[in-house]
Amino acid sequence: MTPEETVRAYYDALRAGEALAPFFVESPATVKVGISERLVGYAEIAKGLREQSRTTEDWTVESHDLDIVERDAAAAVSDAVSLSWYDAEAFAERSFETRWSGTLVPTDDGWAFAGLHVSAPTDLDSGVDR
């Protein structure tokens, strides 16, 4: 798979409620930052993603601006993604306009995230570069 195919497969797996940990490098240095958490190391990421899959359903993932720059040993990823899901523990719908950035590295099976950062704008975000 190419880096773009890997990212799109990750989005598809999220929508389908499939395992997401295989999309990450199995390393203690791998990092995933989500809207409400920071997970460091493959084991912590896998645990966090299992919990996310257990407590959420009906994901909508709409990519609006996927951009991937591939270099010899890595690929940089950025995207604007509309996310929504049902939080089964809170009995509530969740929805965010999110910003994604990450680094993919080649593996024996294709490409995997060495780092992924997902954030949502806050009231403090004014759109002004600092």
Rank of each mutant, 00 (worst) to 15 (best):
T6W: 11
T6P: 07
R8A: 08
R8P: 06
A9R: 11
Y11R: 03
Y11G: 01
Y11C: 04
D12W: 10
A13S: 13
L14A: 09
R15Q: 08
R15H: 11
A16L: 01
E18L: 07
A19K: 14
A19Y: 02
P22E: 06
F23W: 13
F23S: 02
F24P: 15
F24I: 08
F24R: 06
V25M: 09
V25S: 00
V25R: 01
E26D: 04
S27T: 01
P28Y: 04
A29S: 13
A29D: 10
A29P: 05
A29Y: 10
T30S: 14
T30V: 11
V33T: 04
S36A: 11
E37N: 11
E37F: 09
R38Q: 13
R38A: 14
L39Q: 09
V40M: 13
G41E: 12
G41L: 08
G41M: 08
A43I: 06
A43Q: 06
A43H: 03
A43V: 03
E44K: 01
E44Y: 05
A46Q: 03
K47Q: 14
G48Y: 03
R50Q: 06
R50E: 02
E51G: 09
Q52S: 05
R54N: 13
T55D: 15
T55N: 15
T56C: 08
E57I: 01
D58S: 12
W59R: 03
W59M: 02
T60Y: 01
E62I: 00
H64A: 10
L66T: 07
L66V: 05
L66K: 01
L66Q: 07
I68M: 01
V69F: 15
E70W: 05
R71M: 08
R71P: 07
D72L: 13
D72H: 14
A73H: 11
A73M: 12
A74H: 13
A75K: 02
A76Y: 14
V77W: 08
V77M: 05
A80M: 11
V81P: 07
S82H: 03
S82Y: 14
L83R: 03
L83Y: 13
W85N: 09
Y86R: 12
D87Q: 01
A88N: 06
A90T: 05
A90K: 15
F91L: 11
F91N: 12
F91R: 12
A92Y: 01
A92P: 05
E93N: 15
E93F: 14
R94P: 03
R94F: 08
S95G: 14
F96G: 06
F96C: 02
F96D: 03
E97S: 08
E97W: 10
E97R: 08
W100G: 03
S101V: 08
G102S: 05
L104N: 04
L104F: 04
V105F: 10
V105I: 11
V105G: 10
